[in-house]
Design a protein around this nucleic acid. Structure first.
Lengths: 348, 348
DNA sequence: CTCATGAGGAAAACCGGTTTAGTATGAGTG
DNA sequence: CACTCATACTAAACCGGTTTTCCTCATGAG
């Protein structure tokens, strides 16, 4: 207010020190530990600060204290897709609740123009939660070099890689058995495209684990998997619709479509409805995740229930333990899932 | 790797300078502006950095460069509620897309234990987007004192308050006219509770503007508004269900419920379904926002379509203009809305 | 009276980068 | 040959806080 000619500059701790007649140290104490100075000094300093409009620079504080008070969530896809997938959203919610509890903010980190690697190099956070990460990835070594704590959800458990997962292979095996027991033999599988974090060896990626589960059930039933039975989809409803149309156009239309994501499954259902087909009378559809929408849509979706919010919560709690140095070793959490049988799978 | 006995410390620019035989300045140039040094020096420095596992500290860089490379979104409620409301989520998506474009991260800022004021004081961001903010609020003066650019969505336009809005009063007026034209006279209004940012004078808050629109339409039809006709709800589906039950228990059950939020309206619909009542045959329900779910639910919801993602986009674009000092004055954007007439409103 | 103690506060180092100001060297120029 | 200029580099200041170290002085105990 006083200095209205200059382009407006915030007062610093030094200004308050000078103006109040005390030292920088005293000003710092007035804000952080008033017991260290006299009441009179504290009062005068705070009054001066108020008068000059001084608010301690958060960046300078955090820099000095070597902390960010924020944890990062590395978006698996562009913002749009990531948050539009209810499964991912629930994960974010779980993380966010924990952040709230600890008084931290949650930084959403989109893959930058540059690259994900660059995003991780420059991320201003105390720890990072990622989805679908595997040890071989470049960003892992970046996080390690930065000594940045991290936890991955739906990634590959490893000594170097704290993780939160369900038993994807077993869950997939079980739901495929359900499909087979319902009498289906002509089945199309819809896998998920490995997203942003492309990796050389994806043997242990979630889509691969699930695929192994499917295949195991199929081969126990004496069925081999023909590559033409497998399609790949982005994890979006739009892509689910596209895939649905593709499937309906197949000359040998399957009796059941097994997807790795409810949001894709719902896309398929919509495609069927648009084509005038009935689910499950004309074609059965199976999902994965059990998002809220899956119990609302008609027909209700047969799927694997996995507690997304809980995954986020556990990952975040583990991350905070690491940030606070309460944990030294890499923890691996495997949480329960449930097979949910509903209308979209019909007995032949 | 070399120093495995000590508790692991990251090398700093000074270490690289010493180890490579060049100065800190040279190391800085090697990473930021290689043209300023010789190729040989650059090569040696980068090689040393690689060998020692040096990654420039983002915090120190940002501090030195006086920037955060992140913008903040002040959550209007706890994380859980904010992101579970599809309207808010779309706003976040719109903001996120712009952040992505500019290579910024998006920091979600929950109201801290401390207080929202404390959260804003210590937010490590280059600018802030808020919802429902009004000039009188304490956080506004904090942002001004911090010289932190900000834009509010669904807040009160003001010389001090850049904003993105629709014409809430007119939209509400129009949808209420629709209700009245359909013959309804026994109407209950469900307003929204003013959230976290309590304010002394809320004359211009969005709920109040909408209420004015409703009242104008009502009085034009010769109807006065009895306070008992107005209920207040949190902006969550759960609270919508509760409100719905409350309404159904009224002795003089209304023929139409007009809400200020689709998510609340959907809650009411669910409450009606649970009670075995038909919407709209037994009771009509009207919403606001036109979230995606509103066109999926049965009955489809009569509502006001407002472009949530676009609101987020515009707010973020304006904010970046302010951050980059391209705009000096406070901008106010008012964008179009559309009245959407669908099944949930029945003609009497 | 002497000495230990503790309170209150200041000076300076520190966090890890960027940037300004300045130096040494060698090439080009009239 | 003296002068200018560009190149390649360094030292030191700087960003705005926190924290360590140290000084001074008043107080109370022995």
């Amino acid at each position: 207010m006083e200095e209205n000619s200059t382009p407006a500059k915030r007062p610093t701790i030094k200004d308050i020190a000078r103006e109040s007649g005390y030292s920088k140290t005293a000003v710092s104490f007035a804000f952080n530990d008033p017991s260290r100075i006299s009441e009179k000094a504290c009062r005068q300093i705070l009054e001066t600060a108020e008068r000059l409009g001084y608010i301690p620079d958060p960046m300078a504080r955090n820099f000095s204290l070597r902390r960010h008070l924020s944890i990062g969530f590395l978006l698996p896809q562009v913002v749009q897709f990531s948050l539009q997938n209810p499964y991912t959203l629930q994960v974010v919610l779980g993380i966010g609740n924990v952040c709230e509890k600890y008084g931290y903010t949650l930084t959403l980190i989109p893959p930058l123009h540059k690259s994900i690697t660059e995003a991780v190099r420059s991320a201003a956070v105390d720890g990072l939660i990622t989805m679908g990460m595997q040890v071989e990835m470049e960003i892992v070594s970046v996080m390690q070099t930065r000594l940045l704590p991290y936890v991955t959800i739906d990634g590959t458990p490893d000594a170097q890689m704290p993780s939160v997962n369900i038993d994807d292979e077993q869950a997939s095996y079980e739901i495929m058995r359900l499909v087979l027991e319902a009498g289906h033999r002509n089945i199309v599988l819809v896998s998920l495209s490995e997203d942003a974090f492309a990796s050389p060896t994806k043997a242990e990626s979630v889509p691969n684990k699930r695929m192994r589960g499917y295949i195991r059930a199929l081969s126990e039933a004496g069925l081999a998997l023909d590559p033409s039975q497998v399609l790949v989809s982005e994890c979006t409803m739009e892509d689910g619709i596209t895939i649905g149309k593709t499937i309906l156009a197949l000359e040998n239309r399957p009796t059941c479509v097994v997807t790795m994501s409810d949001i894709v499954a719902i896309g398929c259902i919509l495609a069927c409805k648009q084509a005038g087909l009935s689910v499950p009378d004309d074609i059965s559809i199976v999902g994965f995740d059990n998002i809220d929408e899956s119990s609302c849509i008609i027909p209700q979706l047969t799927t694997v229930d996995q507690p997304a919010k809980e995954k986020g919560r556990l990952a975040a709690e583990a991350l905070f333990k690491m940030i606070n140095k309460e944990t030294l070793e890499s923890v691996h959490m495997e949480i329960p899932y449930r097979i949910i049988r509903r209308e979209s799978l019909k007995k032949l």
